[in-house]
């Protein structure tokens, strides 16, 4: 059924699952006691005749029992939760490896060293502790990849941190878990865990501008990209670099998904997205520029070169 929370892929998520299991056993025991007694009572003490039953009013020993046992149980849960919390949130004594910034409705992903900026796709090396700093550029968001660990709010004005350590290579679902406005639903991301070698290779490739030698449609597309208002919001390394409003497009063609996971990143979907962003993702901040067919074709061709 794809119950991500119960299918951990990191030591942090394993720790969470262990706590979950223990907690669930305690709760299941209590539910069994309550439901079992209700069922028994309903059968055993249903009305049989019109006599009034014995009028008992209380029993101190029973009260002590059902006050004392739950106190012990919640005390146990408290200790277990502190142990788990300390194991999951380890102290932070260095700068983050990755900074993730929530925007309405996409995730900016920065690698301070060597200065890579991408969007909605967090690449991490398998088997290494990765420290992620999380903040927001506008409202409150929440960064959550259930199979890899806890969720953490993304606030404007201060930075939160989480540790992640992917155990095996793979692609993990990520969600914005705090209501953040119209397109909260399509503010998803993915964590791509790769072998360290593949990861280093990816990082090096991302750190250099794509900018191949353009020709034909792509060359027209590059010109149109600059002439239209695209550059006002989107950065492409080697073309422009300013305060960014929309996702960085330096290597847009290398990403797996578009628009907060709304679409698979295929040339056709990219073209549809440029054509009618507000149909695919109503109220998103990407405007419909009413591009002509020629512009759609050339800008798509240009963006597809940005591997």
């Amino acid at each position: 059924m794809g119950l991500d929370v119960l299918n951990p892929a990191s030591p942090q998520a394993v720790e969470l699952l262990r706590l979950w299991d223990r907690c669930l056993w305690i709760c299941a025991f209590l539910l069994f006691v309550v439901t079992g007694s209700i069922v028994w009572i309903v059968i055993r003490f249903r009305r049989r005749d019109d006599r009034e039953p014995p009028q008992t009013t209380g029993n101190l020993r029973l009260e002590a029992l059902w006050t004392g046992v739950p106190i012990l149980l919640v005390a146990t849960l408290f200790v277990l939760s502190v142990v788990a919390a300390e194991a999951i949130d380890r102290p932070i004594r260095r700068d983050p490896d990755i900074v993730v910034t929530g925007h309405q409705w996409w995730w900016e992903v920065r690698y301070p060293n060597p200065g890579v900026i991408t969007a909605n796709e967090v690449h991490v090396p398998v088997g290494r502790d990765v420290l992620i700093g999380v903040d927001s550029a506008d409202v409150i968001h929440d960064f959550w990849a259930p199979r890899l660990g806890r969720k953490i709010d993304a606030f404007p004005g201060y930075r939160n941190y989480i540790w992640i350590r992917a155990r095996q290579a793979g692609v993990y679902n990520g969600f914005c878990a705090e209501f953040c406005g119209a397109q909260h639903a399509w503010m998803r991301f993915r964590v791509v865990a790769e072998d360290p070698a593949a990861y280093e290779q990816w990082l090096a490739a991302q750190a250099t501008p794509a900018l191949p030698a353009y020709s034909g449609e792509a060359l027209t597309g590059e010109t149109r990209f600059k002439e239209l208002t695209c550059v006002n919001c989107h950065n492409i390394a080697g073309i422009n670099r300013q305060k960014q409003f929309g996702p960085d497009l330096t290597h847009v063609a290398s990403r797996q998904m578009l628009a907060g996971e709304r679409l698979k990143n295929t040339p056709k979907n990219l073209r549809d997205w440029l054509h009618q962003p507000n149909i695919l993702k109503p109220e998103c901040f990407m405007p419909n520029l009413n591009l002509s067919d020629a512009d759609l074709t050339s800008v798509t061709a240009f963006l597809e070169t940005l591997k």
């Binding site: 969470l16 979950w20 939760s81």
Partner: peptide
């Protein structure tokens, strides 16, 4: 009520267990 409220109460206990709350809150 006794049955359903107990389920709701126990899932509340689950939320009071801090790290589990980190996982399942806002879902």
């Amino acid at each position: 009520f006794l049955f359903t409220f107990t389920i709701g109460g126990l899932s509340g206990v689950i939320f009071a267990t801090v790290p589990i709350d980190w996982q399942v809150t806002d879902t």
